[in-house]
Design a binder for these strands. Structure first.
Length: 582
RNA sequence: GGGGUCGUAGUUAAGCCUGGUUAUAACGCCGGCCUGUCACGCCGGAGGCCGCGAGUUCAAUUCUCGUCGACCCCGCCA
């Protein structure tokens, strides 16, 4: 049907008669002469309808409209001098049409492809039109390249690509499962995997040594700008490894992707930070290192304080944390807004202290002793104009609020370094965290994570157990995480014991894994990367929906297909399902 | 479950705060002219339940409440 793609017509074709096919992008009808930019996935080329070439073709070309699908036959010519278009790759040539065929017509589109983006719901409803836009196609070509880069890199490093089931078993820990009713087993349900976690461990026990999969995962949780109910992971598992081995392979993969997608050399080392340090310095387990503003624990300064708020906090075992904003001029309104912002983040209050004419100014300054004031000045090296922000609360709350308040200041006062990417490994996560809701310890990463030291060495102080778990963070966003797993039955059972999961429940839920651990399971560990998030970050996009061809809305619907939808009574009967919603 | 932003021709926006006239513009669409444009140009035209429903008012696109939808955030997301 065609000899070439539109965007690939070049000077080499001059003089040749070729067939092209594509969509009508723009038409410029001069009456006596009609120009059309013909578009396909590779780009656009100008085709010319002139009565000097074909009277008939020129006449019929008057009917051609935007987004018609054309097949044209014509001679490639060098453009006359002064009419070359340096803005497009094919701008030195044009195709003089001798004959053409309208392969399909098009109604006027609900939105223009070459203009300002219409609102997102319209784009999603007519996703096929949105996907025609060259800038959108660029994203999915990049996504395609990322699949290839991932496969090339991992295969070259001895990994085998193996598939795992989508129809699998519901696991109680972690995110809410999507469930699928089983017709053959009425009243029973499959669950879609939140990740192939157990299967990849089984594959290691199955002797495959190194596994990877670019795999869809499903989590029935609320959506966010960077969260979709189905998303893609680069899932990796390796045998006979420890933390450093997994991080090294991961760095290689991330660098390959960075290089491929950003087109810049990437051979930097990714720094590592312990979880405890991240919390202490940045109040979060995923610090954005594109700006400073570290938090400082100043509880020590106020041991003898007469200021009630601080004294009470300390008495109740809480902490006092501060951060200093330097070199910015803050109005009284800025300060008030800052206080409101911190309160909205859950702070009981936010105290600001400003140094002005070598004197500390603050609503609370009258409660502070001279030595407290000079300690603050010294600790934060306060100069005139600097503003110190302080929160006093429980340790977790103070860190959380100050961590988020730090991000607010970073954005509000434009402190974030532009055009740079700051990767960070956060390591040495706690194995457990206490769930107030469930009144028990839950796995911070997942229940199969191995502790750094045997759990038996800890007596009651379970929150201090360090896991061999790690997260990869980019500019304050988690883009991957994993751990070294328990590979011995006794260690895994210890873990379940800590999680207050009864042996019979553990057997009921994960019996196959526990059995497998008893039959020569090798030491193993792995990691999973959020493929969509990586693309979104590397391509500088705002939303995960931008890198997913057919994304869901925040309510989990697909505006193009109308999913989810009702199903007929017949289907419900087959599944033995009764619904209770009208 | 909670907090917030937005919803006006096919599209993108303005008007709304401070209620009242024919609801404005650009692009698109329709008709006409145009042989070197490339976001072609010029002339003319059509196109609106101002998301939906209540309320306040003599009068509501404008104010209030509710509702639906999209988006952002908190909770949630091992």
């Amino acid at each position: 049907m065609r000899d070439k793609h539109c965007g690939l017509v070049s000077g080499d074709d001059i003089g040749k008669v070729i067939n092209l096919a594509g969509w009508v992008f723009r038409r410029r009808d001069h009456g006596g002469l009609i120009f059309i930019d013909l578009r396909d996935i590779t780009g656009i080329v100008q085709v010319v309808f002139s009565p000097d070439i074909s009277q008939g073709a020129h006449e019929r070309a008057g009917d051609i409209k935007q987004e018609y699908v054309l097949k044209i036959t014509g001679k490639v010519e060098k453009r006359p001098p002064e009419t070359e278009n340096p803005n497009i790759p094919t701008g030195t040539v044009e195709v003089l049409v001798s004959s053409f065929e309208i392969l399909n017509t098009s109604k006027p589109l609900p939105f223009q492809l070459d203009e300002e983006e219409p609102n997102e719901s319209l784009r999603l409803k007519y996703r096929y039109l949105d996907l025609r836009r060259p800038e959108i196609q660029k994203i999915f070509l990049a996504r395609h390249k990322a699949y290839r880069t991932t496969r090339d890199y991992l295969v070259n490093n001895g990994f085998y690509e193996i598939e795992t089931p989508f129809l699998t078993k519901s696991t109680p820990e972690g995110a809410r499962d999507f469930i699928v009713p089983s017709r053959l087993n009425p009243g029973m349900f499959y669950a879609l995997p939140q990740s192939p976690q157990l299967f990849k461990q089984i594959l290691m026990i199955g002797g495959f040594d190194r596994y990877f999969q670019i795999v869809r995962c499903f989590r029935d949780e609320d959506l966010r700008a960077d969260r979709q109910p189905e998303f893609t992971q680069i899932d990796i598992e390796m045998s006979f490894v420890d933390v450093d081995d997994v991080l090294a392979i991961s760095e290689g993969l991330i660098m390959s992707l960075y290089k491929e997608l950003k087109g810049v050399p990437a051979d930097f080392q990714i720094p590592r930070m312990k979880y405890a340090d991240a919390m202490e310095l940045y109040g979060t387990d995923k610090p954005d290192l594109r700006f400073g503003l570290p938090l400082t624990d100043i509880t020590g300064i106020f041991q003898e304080t007469e200021f009630g708020v601080f004294r009470k906090t300390i008495e109740q075992g809480g902490i006092i944390k501060g951060l200093v904003l330097k070199g910015k001029t803050l109005s009284r309104k800025d300060l008030d807004t800052a206080v409101d912002t911190a309160k909205a983040m859950g702070a009981g209050g936010l105290i600001w202290i400003r140094k002005e004419n070598d004197i500390l100014q603050s609503p609370i300054v009258k409660f502070l002793k001279d030595e407290e004031k000079s300690s603050l000045s010294g600790t934060f090296d306060l100069s005139n104009g600097d503003v110190l922000f302080i929160v006093a609360d429980s340790k977790d709350k103070a860190n959380d609020v100050m961590g988020r308040f730090r991000l607010y200041l970073g954005e509000r006062f434009d402190l974030i370094e532009k055009g740079v990417d700051r990767f960070l490994w956060v390591i040495d996560f706690p194995l457990l965290e206490y769930s107030e809701e469930e009144k028990r310890f839950v796995a911070r990463h997942h229940p199969f994570t191995s502790p750094k030291e045997s759990i038996r060495n800890f007596n009651g102080d379970y929150e201090s157990i360090i896991a061999r778990a790690y997260d990869l963070v980019l500019n304050g966003v988690e883009i991957g995480g994993g751990s070294i797993r328990n590979y011995r039955m006794d260690e895994q059972m210890e873990m379940f014991r800590l999680l207050n999961i009864k042996e019979e429940d553990a057997v009921e839920k994960f019996g196959f894994l526990l059995e497998a651990l008893e039959m020569g399971a090798p030491p193993h560990g792995g990691i999973a990367f959020g493929f969509d998030r990586i693309l979104m970050m590397f391509l500088g996009l705002e939303s995960i929906r931008d890198v997913i061809p057919f994304p869901k809305t925040q309510k989990g619907t697909c505006l193009m297909t109308g999913a989810p939808s009702n199903i007929g009574q017949k289907q419900l009967n087959e599944l033995r399902i009764k619904t209770v919603v009208k």
